[in-house]
Simulated assay, not measured.
Amino acid sequence: MTRDHLQKVKADFENSPFWNFIGLELKELEEGHVLLALPIQKEFINVRNSVHGGIYASVLDTAMGMTGRSLGFDEVATLHLDIQYLKSVMDGTVYSEASIIHQNRNTVFIEGRLKNEDGELLGHCTGTFKLSKGERI
């Protein structure tokens, strides 16, 4: 993968309204691997006084989609996510890491892990993503 493509992926995500709204931070970006950080905000807390599962899903989906894009593709669309919620968190920063499990010509199967500051696994996710070069999907 070219450095220019990875810079474009970084810019595309960091300039998206959702990225800025939620407060994501890019820690690592290389071909086939992404690490994101998300400082927990009070607005993420649900009625159980923990981070809402939708935040888990959003951060995992974003890291996994970015990982798909890192392979040299212009467009990546989520086809399926399977999330296991393992442990709740109430404060601090969460880290979402994603890596490739399998890729073919049109799709990629990606694994995502969400951890707390102590490295404890909070959520595990696998997803299938459609890949495209040069065309909107």
Rank of each mutant, 00 (worst) to 15 (best):
H52T: 00
T126E: 07
R3A: 15
N116A: 10
L131G: 10
V108W: 00
L60N: 12
R136F: 06
T107Q: 11
E14K: 05
I83Y: 13
L26Y: 02
L6S: 02
S88R: 04
N46R: 14
K27D: 07
E117D: 12
G119I: 13
A63L: 06
L71E: 09
M64C: 14
D91E: 15
V89H: 10
I110D: 08
F21A: 07
V51T: 13
G53L: 01
H124M: 03
D91S: 14
G53M: 09
V9M: 11
P17M: 09
S50P: 07
V59Q: 09
H102N: 14
S132Y: 08
F18P: 02
W19D: 11
F44T: 01
V89R: 12
T2N: 14
A98T: 05
T62I: 08
I45T: 05
E111F: 00
D4T: 11
L114V: 11
I40Q: 11
G65Y: 05
L38Y: 05
E28P: 00
F18G: 02
L60V: 08
S132L: 11
H80A: 12
G32W: 10
K87Y: 12
L121H: 03
V47T: 09
L35R: 14
G72V: 13
S58N: 11
A98Q: 07
G112S: 03
N116T: 12
G119N: 11
E135Q: 05
E97W: 10
L26V: 07
V51A: 11
T93L: 07
V34T: 15
T126H: 07
K27N: 01
I45N: 06
H124S: 00
P17C: 13
V94R: 14
K130Y: 04
F129I: 00
L86W: 14
F18L: 08
T62W: 08
G53D: 06
H52N: 09
